[in-house]
């Protein structure tokens, strides 16, 4: 079970995914709580033209810079749109998403190796991750976790009660921009390994699955990270076994995401049980509270 990971490229793939697990667990909690799933989806698509331009200009190494610029620009644009109230309509997000994505496709289609390039941008190349890429992901992970640790308290307050947070002196617009930039940085960190499409799964599924097990935010982050780690190990192992032992080609990143979704599906019944239990508690609370107060 360990042996495949002694092969260098498998070991590097697992290391890269472990770093992504470390950041995606906590960030997905905020994506979930702020209901930013669609905004995250938009970010992953709008980063795509940046990835293409970065690649055309500077090859593989240019991807991170291109993605970074595109990600931060979109984070600002989406924050401004939502401030004007325009984003209450999902349509404007969808317009930004599809427009940027189309620009990316137009750019990439000018190249002769069109399909191969498109596939690697969309689905990543987890098995060809280089030590340098791992180092870059590690740097981004430190930046992302640092920003998150610094702002977690303010972000939680703003998410739960925007009016209350503003009244307490927190600048809600800046907090929104900060969270959008954090999500953009995660997309940038993950884009070469898992691609712009599959990174959405890492940003949405972990917290949604963890929510079935706990109502504590910190625990949700930890469980989210563990779920990605397990899916990463299982997915890589499955794709290795499929191709080495059975000659079936199973894309590694897709296997990882499928396992993550499977974990979510397996946890769904637990979530249903929990919410039924909670409904029971509301009733008993209401019955008990007057006596508590009088006594």
């Amino acid at each position: 079970m360990i042996e495949p990971f002694t092969v260098p490229f498998m070991g590097r793939a697992l290391a890269e995914l472990a770093l992504l697990a470390l950041i995606c667990g906590p960030v997905s909690v905020f994506v979930f709580a702020r209901r930013l799933s669609f905004v995250s989806d938009a970010l992953t698509h709008t980063v795509f033209p940046g990835v293409v331009i970065g690649f055309l200009a500077g090859g593989i190494e240019g991807i991170v810079v291109g993605a970074l610029v595109a990600g931060v620009v979109t984070a600002v644009v989406l924050t401004l749109l939502s401030r004007g109230g325009a984003l209450s309509d999902d349509a404007s997000t969808a317009v930004v998403l599809t427009a940027m994505f189309s620009i990316g496709v137009v750019l990439v289609s000018r190249r002769s190796s069109y399909t191969a390039d498109l596939t690697s941008f969309l689905f990543g190349r987890i098995l060809t991750v280089t030590p340098r890429q791992i180092a870059e992901t590690a740097v981004l992970a430190v930046v992302i976790l640092g920003l998150l640790l610094f702002s977690a308290r303010a972000l939680i307050f703003r998410t739960f009660d925007p009016a209350g947070a503003a009244a307490a002196g927190f600048r809600v617009a800046w907090l929104d921009l900060l969270l959008n930039i954090i999500v953009a940085l995660v997309v940038v960190a993950a884009v070469r390994a898992v691609g712009t499409i599959l990174v959405v799964a890492l940003l949405i599924v972990p917290a949604a699955a963890a929510r079935m097990l706990t109502t504590r935010l910190s625990l949700m982050a930890v469980i989210g990270t563990v779920l990605i780690l397990v899916a990463a190990y299982g997915g890589l192992l499955a794709s290795w076994t499929a191709s080495v032992d059975y000659g079936i080609s199973l894309t590694s990143a897709s296997a990882v995401v499928l396992l993550l979704v499977l974990a979510y599906l397996l946890l769904l019944p637990l979530g249903a049980l929990r919410s039924r239990h909670n409904r029971g508690r509301i009733v008993s609370d209401a019955r008990r509270s007057p006596h508590e107060l009088v006594g």
Binding site: L149, R153, A154, F157, F160, D161, G164, A168
Partner: peptide, 10 residues
Amino acid sequence: MGRYRRIGWW
């Protein structure tokens, strides 16, 4: 959360 303003960001 009522104490956050006193506690500061982190």
